[in-house]
């Protein structure tokens, strides 16, 4: 709006063709691509950290929502963007699962990106309709195993957090439930609230308020430890289901070939943002917590992505579902 901004923009435009140098980075506005619609949980996480990171970097990070095809369109765009640190991607676990779910991706997940760091890992909760009979998680396991073919399991579409968690649940319990896919969490949750479906396993982001309000029943969390948010809820691992440990982790990526100093600078900025009280508080409201500083690093994210691709490949292939 101001003259200085205009000059800034013109200046930025003039250096676009020059090779990116890390000295003085960032010199202009950074675009953070979120491969999902505005207002969704991933978008929320992105906007939270983007705001704090902007303060630290001294340049505005603008969130651009490039939704579609389970996040692969947005990721594909960043993969092809200039590796100058001015286009970054914030994506969740879908980055790893889409490598298997989509058999003809436009990019090579492991070789198209550089890494900035992990942002947060949102826990999952196994929930059921309000009047579901079992009283606790062991009873739930018994009941579900005994009635597998008459119980329904909702998910928010292929590749969604609830779909991944549902696959894990069915494999862990060896119970092939009747899966009922929905288009998004909203309608799936509505049907769970209305008792039209029996079970759903979804992120705390989507379930916390409903559990606290007593409109759905929670059985277990998928974290290694119990959550502060629900101290009474056992972990699935406590009942011996170690394989059911997982969360929706979010990471920030840059296109392959971005100068390491730039990734490092972004990573430092991310760590500062995650240490911010406001961010911690906002994430706590969503039932999650910022990743520790040690995880908000390029190395940690790279290791996570590789491990998760390897982990989900057999699960998805066993279920035999593909999104293309």
């Amino acid at each position: 709006m101001t003259a200085s901004k205009l000059i800034g923009a013109l200046f930025a435009a003039t250096i676009l063709t020059a090779p990116a140098f890390a000295q003085g980075y960032p010199e202009r506005q950074i675009t953070m691509v979120v491969p999902f619609a505005a207002g969704g949980p991933t978008d929320t996480v992105a906007r939270l950290v983007a705001e704090r990171m902007s303060e630290d970097l001294g340049q505005q990070i603008v969130v651009e929502n490039v939704g579609g095809a389970g996040g692969t369109l947005g990721a594909g765009r960043v993969a092809k963007a200039e590796a100058d640190g001015y286009t970054v991607l914030l994506h969740h676990i879908g980055m790893a699962t889409s490598a298997t779910l989509y058999r003809n991706l436009a990019y090579d997940t492991l070789n198209a990106f550089d890494y900035v760091g992990l942002v947060t890992e949102v826990p999952m909760v196994v929930t059921a309709r309000q009047d579901f009979e079992p009283a606790d998680f062991p009873a739930f396991v018994e009941y579900v195993k005994a009635n597998a073919d008459s119980l329904t399991l909702a998910n928010a579409g292929i590749g969604a957090a609830s779909h991944l968690c549902g696959m894990l649940l069915m494999q862990a319990l060896e119970a092939p439930l009747v899966t009922v896919p929905y288009k998004g969490t909203g309608p799936a949750m509505t049907d769970l609230l209305g008792g039209q479906v029996d079970i759903m396993c979804d992120q705390t982001t989507n379930t916390t308020q409903q559990i606290k309000g007593g409109t759905i029943k929670a059985y277990a969390v998928t974290t290694p430890e119990r959550l502060d948010l629900f101290p009474d809820l056992p972990t699935a691992a406590e009942s011996g289901f170690e394989a059911m440990q997982f969360g929706i982790w979010h990471g920030i990526y840059t296109p392959k070939g971005t100068p390491p100093e730039v990734n490092q600078r972004l990573s430092e900025s991310l760590q500062k943002a995650l240490a911010d009280e406001g961010v911690t508080k906002a994430m706590a409201d969503l039932g999650t917590a910022p990743s520790p500083a040690a995880d908000a690093t390029p190395e940690a994210l790279k290791a996570k992505l590789e491990a998760e691709i390897a982990r989900w490949k057999p699960v998805i292939e066993a279920a035999g579902v593909y999104a293309d």
Partner: peptide, 27 residues
């Protein structure tokens, strides 16, 4: 009352609420 969006506009409103630290729901 439920925290469930009836249309895309409502979904955006939920996002706005969450950013403001209000998680929409029955409470």
């Amino acid at each position: 009352t439920l925290g469930i969006p009836a249309n895309p506009v409502m979904a955006l409103m939920i996002g706005a609420m969450i950013i403001q630290g209000i998680v929409p729901g029955p409470n």
